[in-house]
Simulated assay, not measured.
Amino acid sequence: MTIQQKTELYDYSENDLTILNSPIGLKYLFMDKKTDIEKALRMAKYEIQLKELQTELIKLQNWTINNRKKIVILFEGRDAAGKGGAIRRITAHINPRHFRIVALPKPTVEEEGQWYFQRYVNQLPTPGEMVLFDRSWYNRAGVEPVNGFCTDHQYTTFMGQVNDFERMILESDTHLIKLYFSISKEEQASRFKDIKSSPLKKWKMTPVDEKAQELWDEYTKYKIKMFEQTNTKPSPWVIIEADRKTEARIKAIQYILDTIPYQDEIEK
């Protein structure tokens, strides 16, 4: 049976058929032994749309460089929510000399004695640069109190300072975007199972990850508090529904492009 004959069983548009018969569509049609036309079409559309958005991200970066703008994007969410995958798609084709991905490790003894935000201040962008935080200062709003990594006083102090801290970032002529990738408990469990069973992924599981399902309700409690107290008009949270990774990546990139008022410029 030909692709045309197979697709006659479904109600596909002319554009859908064109996509399925394109090199991208054919790649996904024959990727698995069992042909899944719906999945192939969905993945082909995703790849096409992703490439279009990645082209726009290059324009955004050129505008950032040429106009000496500063951009900070926070990627927050539960463990295995897809933050890293989204970051990889965002940075896949932009100039590596003008962006940084920041994923800070556990604070050193010296850093533990500093003002909490100090090590994050040291990572903020210089003019013409974009910085993407794979988890950020909001560790203290969720991961740390849930797992006993900070005291109640430290948590309360953080919650009392964070809005002012972000106000100062914004007032320093910096674009600040806060993305929260939201997944269901069932989806997180499924992803953990996949990670544990894969020799290429199992390194991702940490002791904190191992307790994430058990502490699900505690994380929820602190997440609600975080949204209630830090979702401000100048610096709002954007919730990305992330049970389907491909849709989450598209939504995240589209929001970034829609929010930052960049213009298409020729790189200088």
Rank of each mutant, 00 (worst) to 15 (best):
I3L: 12
L29W: 13
I37H: 06
L41Y: 02
M43A: 13
M43Q: 14
A44R: 01
K51V: 08
Q54V: 05
L57M: 09
L57D: 00
T64W: 12
R68P: 11
K69P: 05
K70G: 00
V72P: 00
V72R: 00
G77V: 02
G77P: 03
D79Y: 07
G82H: 00
K83F: 04
I87Y: 03
R89Y: 02
I90Q: 04
I90H: 00
N95Q: 03
R97A: 13
A103L: 06
L104V: 06
Q114L: 13
T126F: 14
G128Q: 07
L132D: 02
D134L: 00
S136N: 03
W137D: 07
A141H: 01
T151P: 06
Y155I: 03
F165D: 13
S172E: 11
T174R: 04
T174V: 10
F181S: 00
S182Y: 11
K185H: 10
E186N: 09
E187W: 07
A189P: 14
I195M: 15
S197K: 09
L200Q: 07
K202R: 15
V208P: 05
A212W: 09
E214W: 14
W216N: 02
D217N: 11
E218W: 12
E228C: 09
T230Q: 03
S235L: 05
S235C: 11
P236A: 04
W237T: 04
V238H: 09
E241T: 07
A242D: 07
R244Q: 15
A248W: 02
R249Y: 04
I250L: 07
I250S: 03
I250T: 05
T259E: 13
I260Y: 02
P261C: 04
P261V: 03
Y262N: 02
K268S: 12
K268W: 14
K268H: 13
